[in-house]
Design a protein around this nucleic acid. Structure first.
Lengths: 124, 124
DNA sequence: TCGTGTATGTGCACCATACACTTAGCCCGC
DNA sequence: GCGGGCTAAGTGTATGGTGCACATACACGA
């Protein structure tokens, strides 16, 4: 309870949520790990660690959902730039559908919870 | 893609989703594991295995969120009947709040995804 | 007595996640 | 020129939830 010290969710985001997040961001535009790391925060992943993002990108690369190219940078070290493949785009659509199902289930939970709270109030 | 053979979500439900589910069901009424096992399916957990449910109930018992009593059954073996504690009720409220946050994040994702799809259509 | 349904559990391996740590290039100030 | 800070990309490892298989036991009917 009270959940001080950082505000971590007692329940986490959906399993593998990072994958659809990265696919969505890459569908919006080619990017590299370090930049994606900052952008995923806006999708509900607060301050997720670099290792997680880099490993996920690697795995999707091996799965053929994205492909990467080393690109030099004028302002720092070289970047591994990622772009979405056609298969990755298909996966994005599929994962977005799955997330919609999760969202629906969560909506059902909320309705049921609110009904319970209302019953408790009237019974009080 | 295509996801034959059972229809498992490519992305799963939130981590620890079973806990708020069981707490909600127990808030609606005292019950036992085998019955809860069937009821959680309605909350979005399709055919979750018994072991998971029993282990979760045990863990919550040790955490003091529920307490259990052995009750004989006329139609079969004895049941371990669970009831919600005050602390369990507090946790239910907290977890429901967390799930609401998750739900909000997922809503944001969906909006962003749909915007992308629309852009793709107009650009086609 | 053997199978079926109810009811509760354990064993184990896998995998995502969390957290800590490392490497390396570039630039700026001292 | 040298140290520190920022950018950028990783690796190592422990933990913990989950999936799947398996074990146990009671009741009841064929």
């Amino acid at each position: 309870m009270s959940d001080e010290s950082g505000g971590e969710f007692p329940v986490g985001m959906p399993r593998n949520y990072l994958r659809p997040c990265l696919l969505l961001l890459l569908a919006e535009g080619t990017s590299h790990g370090y930049e994606l790391l900052e952008q995923v925060a806006a999708l509900g992943l607060g301050r997720s660690d670099p290792g997680r993002v880099y490993r996920c990108l690697r795995a999707m690369d091996e799965d053929g959902l994205v492909h990467s190219v080393w690109t030099p940078s004028a302002t720092g070290p070289a970047r591994r730039t990622y772009a979405l493949t056609d298969e990755g785009r298909d996966w994005l659509d599929a994962l977005a559908g799955s997330l919609a199902e999760v969202s629906r289930a969560l909506g059902g939970y909320q309705r049921r919870y609110k009904r319970l709270v209302k019953q408790d109030e009237t019974a009080r």
